[in-house]
């Protein structure tokens, strides 16, 4: 009885510690929601108060200010994500299922690309984008984004595909299916769960990217959401703190929606393949 009580107290303490930490970790987010619903006057006079009456006008202004940029972000990130998922699926299938001369050498080469850190190639990439005349073009984002994500993707799809019995592909071949056909109708469905993970991971990092769009896109109309909120903020000025913070919340919405539909991926998928012992 006493041991049980002690255990319960222990568990209670654990809950208390975890929940306290969690609450503090959520403070910036709570603050974001609070400030975004307050007017300038409310912020000065009653910083700690509940943001009532809600200043929904902030959100109206924020949406008006950044919706086009959120659209840009979604389009660019989706294009790069689709490209990476497709290339991962193809590459994983080729390396995992097919046998062809130079396979191991090519795979080694592919893996070795992982050693190139972003900071090393930042400058030449910038010069390359300039000399190709891609500055301010969506391709200045999509192409570099899609040059890297597929390495991890290919590794993951490869291990998923090579785990499949070869007989499936053999019998497909006997039934007259070509390489492309068996890729589309067998490999893609098999790799779909891992492809979802790859897609979600990559989409999130593209949508989050700040530095590269800041560097290669200067046209406000073509700018992505993460950079646009700062421009919106400088336009709104000091009196527009509520509006600026509302814009932060607005650009978070697409990722929130994605999370709702794929929380499984976040809670397990992100770590799968990251560590193997």
């Amino acid at each position: 009885m006493k041991a049980r009580l002690k255990r319960n107290i222990n568990q209670g303490l654990i809950y208390a510690a975890v929940l306290t930490t969690l609450t503090v970790a959520f403070l910036p987010i709570i603050l974001m929601l609070g400030v975004s619903l307050k007017t300038r006057y409310q912020l000065i006079v009653d910083f700690w108060g509940f943001p009532y009456p809600f200043a929904f006008g902030n959100y109206a202004e924020a949406v008006k200010g950044v919706y086009a940029n959120v659209g840009n972000s979604l389009i660019y990130a989706s294009a790069a994500t689709v490209l990476v998922a497709l290339l991962s699926a193809m590459g994983g299938y080729v390396f995992g299922v097919l046998d062809f001369p130079g396979r191991n050498a090519l795979y080694m080469l592919l893996i070795s690309f992982l050693m190139i850190p972003a900071i090393l190639i930042l400058t030449p990439r910038l010069a390359l984008i300039n000399s190709l005349g891609l500055r301010n073009s969506p391709f200045a984002l999509i192409l570099p984004w899609a040059s890297g994500g597929q390495i991890m993707g290919i590794m993951l799809v490869r291990s998923a595909a090579s785990g499949q019995p070869k007989e499936i592909f053999e019998s497909a071949r006997i039934d007259g299916a070509g390489e492309f056909r068996s890729f589309w109708s067998i490999s893609i469905p098999i790799a779909l769960p891992i492809l979802t993970t790859i897609a979600v991971m990559n989409f999130m990092s593209y949508y989050n990217d700040y530095l590269w769009p800041l560097t290669v896109i200067s046209d406000e109309k073509r700018q992505v959401a993460t950079v646009a909120i700062q421009m919106f903020q400088s336009n709104a000025g000091d009196n527009g703190v509520g509006q600026s913070v509302a814009a932060y919340a607005v650009i978070t919405v697409p990722l929130l929606v994605m999370f709702i539909f794929s929380s499984r991926v976040y809670m397990s998928g992100l770590t799968s393949g990251a560590v193997k012992t």
Binding site: M90, F100, L106, L110, L120, A127, L128, F183
Partner: peptide, 27 residues
Amino acid sequence: KKRRAYIMLLPTFALLILFALYPAFQA
């Protein structure tokens, strides 16, 4: 005979060479 394997890898390697390997060596 296996040309399709190379064709399917071509876009990946083209992108990686142009936007990763080439800049790396340039750097």
